[in-house]
């Protein structure tokens, strides 16, 4: 186990190095200037500013300096936000996105699992159709449509919850629910399919023959096996929630990270592009690692050492 994790961590750094290098090359190819007032300055005046930020050096020199700073955890100075260094800025904004993302994924998976199990256990009944419809709606309607709908009903018309802004946990409810629709749908679909398959397998028949009760069969025997595929997709779903929360965050005026990611590219804000990219990469890679480790916990048959199965 320890050996496996070490190996994975080494791979992780290798991946990050490659991602950083690619990002660097791509962002140097972006057209335009990172200066907001570039249109107003003469070439000489622009040069002075570039000089200060080291943008006049040859690209390889910039690359080596950049990677060196990156290794020290220094992303450089943002052109957009001169008031804060990039790490602080990302951490501050990430807080809101993380709260929303975590709530959405926890709420989404729990509801999704419940719906999926109900559907599988009561196959071809009203319950099954009901949860399938929810799953289809959840996967086919984008989260921002839910966001607008929820905002209209619960904030504008009923006035139960805030329309937007960040005023504590109450403000997090509607965006979290909007974001949770995707995970609900994904979890429900996976659990249903897997449960139906598992429930028709021989060992369940055996359990039934042994006289195990319904509850025991569903949770102890079937559910655990049905979880594996869900765990696999939850990693990327979680990462997607953080990056994909952009529109939902805007609708509820939550000061999260989603928008920063997009805006930094449009404004050539190199430091923020690199900062957010690295942040999301680390996040995704760590989640994939956790997922892989979780496999072993859920199903001891999966061996982590990478040897033969």
């Amino acid at each position: 186990m320890a050996k496996y994790v070490t190996k994975r961590v080494i791979y992780m750094f290798l991946s990050l190095f490659l991602i950083a290098s690619f990002t660097f090359v791509l962002m140097k190819m972006l057209p335009g200037s990172p200066l907001a007032s570039a249109a107003k300055l003469s070439v000489e005046q622009r040069e002075v500013v570039y000089e200060k930020y080291g943008l006049n050096d040859p690209i390889p020199v910039q690359y080596i300096r950049y990677m060196g700073n990156l290794a020290k955890g220094d992303f450089g100075v943002s052109f957009q936000y001169k008031s804060a260094d990039v790490t602080t800025l990302i951490v501050k904004k990430l807080k809101y996105s993380a709260i929303l993302g975590t709530q959405a994924i926890v709420f989404g998976t729990i509801i999704g699992i419940v719906l999926g199990m109900i559907a599988a256990l009561k196959q071809n009944t009203v319950w099954d159709y009901g949860s399938t419809i929810i799953a289809i709606l959840g996967i086919s309607i984008p989260s921002f449509v839910f966001a607008v709908l929820l905002q209209y009903v619960f904030a504008v018309k009923l006035e139960w919850l805030p329309v937007g802004l960040w005023e504590g946990w109450k403000s997090s409810i509607l965006p979290s629910i909007a974001l949770a629709m995707g995970p609900i749908a994904i979890a429900a679909r996976f659990i249903r399919t897997e449960m139906i398959e598992v429930l028709s397998s021989d060992y369940i028949l055996l359990a039934k023959a042994k006289g195990a009760n319904w509850f025991e069969i569903a949770f102890k025997h079937a559910f655990r096996n049905a979880l594996i595929p869900l765990v696999t997709v939850l990693g990327p779903v979680a990462a997607g929630l953080l990056t994909g929360s952009l529109v939902v965050e805007q609708i509820f005026a939550v000061p999260g990270i989603g928008e920063q990611f997009v805006k930094s590219i449009a404004t050539n804000d190199f430091a923020i592009i690199m900062g957010t990219t690295m942040f999301f990469s680390v996040f995704l890679i760590v989640i994939i690692l956790i997922v892989d480790i979780l496999y072993g916990v859920i199903d001891p048959r999966i061996r982590l050492s990478g040897g033969s199965k």
Binding site: V148, Q151, A155, V156, V163, G164, L165, Q250, I251, F252, A253, E259
Partner: peptide
């Protein structure tokens, strides 16, 4: 607030 609809609400 970046969304006009939210601001109007």
């Amino acid at each position: 607030v970046k969304e006009t609809s939210t601001a109007v609400n």
